[in-house]
Design a protein around this nucleic acid. Sequence first.
RNA 1: GCCGCGGUAGUAUAGCCCGGCCCAGUAUGCGGGCCUUUCGAGCCCGUGACCCGGGUUCAAAUCCCGGCCGCGGCACCA
Length: 511
Amino acid sequence: MNKLPVNEQKRILEERYPHLLVEEEKTKEKEKTLPPLPNAEKGKVKTRFAPNPDFVIHLGNARPAILSDEYAKMYDGKMVLRFEDTDPRTKKPLREAYDLIKEDLKWLGVKWHEEYIQSQRMSIYYDIARELIRRGCAYIDLCKEKSRELLRAGKACETRNNPVEWQLEHFEKMLNGEYNEGEAVLRIKTKLDHPNPSVRDWVAMRIIDTVKNPHPLVGSKYTAWPTYNFAVSVDDHLMGITHVLRGKEHQVNTEKQLYIYNCMRWRPPEFIHFGRLKLEGFIMSKSYIRRLMEENPDKFLGYDDPRFGTIAGLRRRGITPEAIRTVILEVGIKPGDAKLSWANLASVNRKILDDRADRIMFIDEPIELVIEADKCLEAKIPYHPNRPEKTRTIKICPGDKIYINKRDKADEVRLIGLGNFKLEENKAVFTGESLEYARNMKLSIIQWTPVAQSVSVEVLVPKELELIRVQGYAEPAIREYKVDDKLQFIRYGFIRIDSIGEKYVVVFSHK
RNA sequence: GCCGCGGUAGUAUAGCCCGGCCCAGUAUGCGGGCCUUUCGAGCCCGUGACCCGGGUUCAAAUCCCGGCCGCGGCACCA
C-alpha cells in the first residue's frame, strides 16, 4: 500500500473508506482553545501581567503574559501591564528593563490597555495601609529579629495589641524615615496558628535604605516600601482585575492576599495557578543568566544570546512570536509542570517559517571544482518552491569555479538549477540538463555556489552552553536580505541573519 | 521536616469534574514509504503511555484508600 503513489492511495481510500477522509478534514479544523475562565462574563474580564523589571522576560514569564492576553481577547476584556518594582534592595530594578519588557511583549503580540509602575504609586499603598491599621487589621512591629521566633511559636510582638492611635503614629514615623532597615515593619494580622509560618502576620511594609540602594526611578524618595503581597492586593483591586493568572509559586501568596481582601471587604478576583514551564536545552533563570554573563563576559552575546531562553534570545535564534504563542496555548493552564522539548518548539516554528523563508544555497565544507562544459550555463532558481515564478539566475561558463560540500562529492550529481555533472578530482564535467535523467539515476541534488561571487558566511550554532562558529559560503543572492530576515539554507536548516559586515553572520535556528 | 499541588508514550497535550462510545485521541520525535530540482514541506503506514497496590462497580485513565515519585511554598523576593 505504501509503495503506491499518493493519488492511488487516496483513490483506494476514497473507494473503501470514504468516511475516513471526511473525518480527517474535520479534526484538522479543530484548533487548540483555552478552557473557559470561572465567573467570566464577556466584556468584563480584566487580566494583568505584572513582571518585575529586574531583567528581561523569558519563556516562562511569557506564559502568564500570553495567557492573560489570550483570555482578555477571548472575553473582549482588557489587560493591564504593571511593573512590580518595590524592592530596590534585593531585586533591584534595571532601568532598561521596563522598555525591554515592553518591546518583548509587543513582539509577542501581547496587547495591554493600561500601564502602571508600582514605584509611582507609593502614596496609594500608604493610604491603604493607614486604612488597614484603622480597621485593626495591621500593626507596627518593633520587635525586630525577635518577631520571627515569636511567630514561629504562634505568638506575636507585644505591639500587636497597641491601640490604633499608637499604630498610626508609628506608621508615620516609618514613612518619615525615623527607622533604619529592620527596625520596624507593618504586619497584617492573620491567624497566628496558620500551618504555614510565613503566612502568620505577614509583612506588608518594610524599611529599605534607598540612600544605600537608590531606586532607578524614584531614587531615595521613599524608605518605607510595600511588599509584593501588599502592593499586589491593592493594585489588583484598584485596577479592577477579575482574573489573576500566575504560576503556582504564588499559591501561598494568594492566601496571604485574601486577608487584605477580607479586611477591606473587597471582592477577590479569581486566581488561577499553573505549573512551571521549562524549555529543554535553554537557560531560563534570570539570576543564572546574569551570573553567566558576569563570569564569562566574552562568552555570551548579551541577554539576547541565542543560548538563553529569554524572549530576546529566542527572537535572535529565529523563533517566531507565533510559534511561542502556539506552544504556550498548547501547554495551557494545567497545574502540572511542563518541560517543552526543543524539537517541539522547532517543529512549530518550522511550519511557520517554511512558507516565509526563501531558499538560499550555502556551503559549509567547501571544495573547489572547475566547470567543464561546451557552453555557458544558466541556473534559474526559484527563491521558494511555492513561488516558482520568482527566480534568480546564476551564470556559469566553462572554466569557472564553484564550491560544493565535500560530503556531497560523488561520481555524478545534479547541481540545483544548473544540470548534471560527473565529478572528477577537481573538475565537474557537464553531462546534460535533464532532470528526468537525474531522477532516474537517483543522483543527489545538491547545492553549490560560484566561487567568484560567493559571500562569506559565519553560522552561529547554539549547542547547550557552547556557540559553534561554522564558516562557509553562500550564493550571491544572500545579499538581497537584511538583518533579522529568516532564510532556509538548502539542505542545511533555517537561519536568521544576525549581522552584516565583512561577512554575513547568521544564527542557526533549527533544521 | 511541615504545608500545598500534581503524576497519560521520549516530549507536549485530549479524555478525568458527569465511570461504559478509550484494548486511550492529537502533535512532535523515531522507523519505513510516496511525492518533490533540499536530507525541508506535504501525504501514507508503523512505533510508543493511563506511577504502583488495593477497594467500589456488571464496567475505572476516570470514583475511594494507601504508597511511591516529581514540583512549588515555608523571606522584611517578586
